[in-house]
Amino acid sequence: MKSQLLSINDLSTADIHSILSTAAELERITDGPTKKLPTLRGRTVVNLFFEDSTRTRISFETAAKRLSADVINFSAKGSSVSKGESLKDTAQTLQAMGADAVVIRHGSSGAAQRLADSGWISATVINAGDGTHEHPTQALLDAFTISKSFPDRKSDFSGLRVAIVGDILHSRVARSNVLLLSKLGASVTLIAPPTLLPVGVETWPVKISYNMDEQLEEFDVVMMLRIQIERMSNFFFPSEREYSRQYGLNEERLLRMKKSAIVMHPGPMNRGLEISASSADSSRSVIVDQVGNGVLTRMAVLYLLLGGAALTEVGQ
């Protein structure tokens, strides 16, 4: 495995299987009264967040702490970053403080790769979401969630039909999931109004649909994406109501899905816009499971990238 996780493209299929099976192993080991393992004791993980994201930061923080790493949260708000300090200076500061891993969330696409490739820092860089580019650990936790929902498959997704619905254009979750799910053999369909699909999407390994109702019965997984209401001002869709009617997951659509199909959402949800409360809370929804699986998957990533002590040893 590469020493960085910037994009799903950094991972071979074997790497992905290794992360998913490590996450499963970690779940087994930590499923007792003691949730904490000593494997990254003495290591320092910095959460470098240039964008607000309480969920992702807490998830990484919990993952690192369960592996006994020291965690520093560096948030752009209230720090020197908001006073014009550059990414380079921030990186060099963290380097001087001896960070072993930097988990970076940034509003600019490519920021994580820039940090990793620039030579400013020698720590392991983990992309926790860069602009509208990628969010690889989200895709990994989604794959882990799917593999748990379809236990017979053992993380081989060939023939599995996945729909990703919503704002594909601005979604780093969608980009990472398209790459990861297609690597694992799934057939991915993107469902969105044409305005929310990027020009060039025809080169992606996916099917495209503008109509949510066309093949809803055929999907094993329906992943809903968050719609940002401010998109309306740029004419991406006429109104919230119209979007909800055309592309929202409501009760009626939920009932038409396969019996075995699951509903996913990376959160935070706009209940009543892209997903109805009844869909979000239904028995098909694995949205809450995604959160717990996020911690396990990020533990697996930190463990594998930072080369912690073997799990069998710490498990004893």
Binding site: S109, G131, T132, H133, R175, P198, V199, G200, T203, W204
Partner: peptide, 18 residues
Amino acid sequence: AQMNEGAVSSRLGLAGWP
């Protein structure tokens, strides 16, 4: 806009310059 709008911008998540 950040780069030419096309296949590459779609992958990189950079706003397209058509």
